[in-house]
């Protein structure tokens, strides 16, 4: 068990190194001078050259790559963000908890909805409920998230004034007691997390249905039915318990799409997370921040799937003892 987790950890580190290399390569293929934002009408060529020298951009690419890798891996130094004039790592560190909060809430809604709909659909395959859920969930996940977000802002914020739709706290609450602030954040969380969670949950429902049907066709379920257990016990305890294993595996694999989703929602709802930061960095051509942001996005995915994988190993007795 410990050995296999160590192996998994090693391959994660390798994966992260590959991710770093790819990010670096991609950003440096891009045309255009990253220092152009500092270039005024009277900036001389010598000043530009001095600036390039100061940032080390005049060195050969492999040298830049090695120097960058060394400072990133050994010193945790991701460079100074051009647009924030602060260390890129510090800028990013502020946003990660917000993205994780949004992501976890989304997962909660996604899995709650997905399990409910999936189980309901698997009760009677190809029945009325199953077909309705199949069509409804297809409708839901075909709707663009950003548009769903805008429409929910239109209805719940602009029209009915029910929920806040921008940022993660109301102005003037920064000195309020902790509980008030937490409640305020929760209120701001409802719309973005629901928009994302509902459309992701619709996608998950189909998968839960298939995997539950697979589990329900096994011999132990027939045994459970034969010994007279109620249908609810059979489905929820015996069937679902065993379809959780592929679900745990799926969790790790769906993390990139979760992060894609949070990026969209963060931009639409002005949620101060990693996705929105990357979006702003990209528009400002802030090279260190783009590099760090993309890498941290991938890092979140790799770390998340590592956690999901370890959970999966604990959830599956064959792997726990194997």
């Amino acid at each position: 068990m410990a050995g296999s987790i160590l192996r998994r950890l090693a391959s994660s580190v390798l994966l992260f190194f590959l991710v770093l290399t790819l990010t670096f390569a991609l950003v440096h293929i891009a045309p255009g001078n990253p220092l152009r934002i500092y270039q005024g009408p009277h900036t001389t060529r010598a000043q530009m050259a001095a600036m390039e020298h100061a940032y080390g951009l005049d060195r050969p690419l492999p040298v830049q790559y090695l120097a960058w890798l060394k400072s990133v891996a050994l010193e945790g130094n991701w460079g100074i963000s051009f647009s924030h004039q602060r260390p890129a790592l510090a800028v990013i560190r502020d946003t990660i908890p917000n993205t994780v909060l949004l992501g976890l809430t989304t997962l909660l809604i996604q899995y709650g909805l997905g399990l409910l709909l999936g189980v309901a659909a698997a009760r009677r395959p190809d029945g009325l409920v199953d077909s309705t859920i199949r069509i409804a969930s297809m409708l839901l996940y075909s709707i663009p998230t950003f548009w769903l977000g805008l429409m929910s802002i239109l209805l719940f914020h602009l029209q009915w004034h029910l929920l806040p739709a921008s940022g993660m706290s109301s102005p003037g609450t920064s000195n309020a007691p902790l509980m008030t602030r937490a409640g305020d954040v929760a209120l701001h969380l409802i719309l973005p997390a629901s928009v994302l969670g509902i459309s992701a949950g619709a996608r998950l429902a189909r998968f839960v249905r298939n995997s539950l049907l697979d589990a329900l066709s096994q011999d132990y379920v027939r045994t459970a039915r034969a010994k007279g257990l109620s249908e609810g016990r059979v489905v929820w305890l015996h069937g679902l318990r065993n379809s959780l294993v592929p679900l745990a595996q799926l969790l790790g694999m769906s993390l990139p799409s979760l992060l894609n989703g949070t990026l969209v929602v963060e931009v639409v709802f002005a949620w101060p997370g990693l996705g929105r930061l990357l979006f702003d960095a990209a528009t400002a051509r802030d090279f260190p921040l783009i590099l760090a942001g993309t890498a941290f996005g991938a890092l979140l995915v790799i770390a998340g799937s590592l956690i999901a994988d370890v959970l999966h190993r604990f959830a599956d007795p064959r792997l726990r003892h194997g």
Partner: peptide
Amino acid sequence: SFPQLFLIIA
């Protein structure tokens, strides 16, 4: 393991 949209937007 890159969130595709992160890569595309960058």
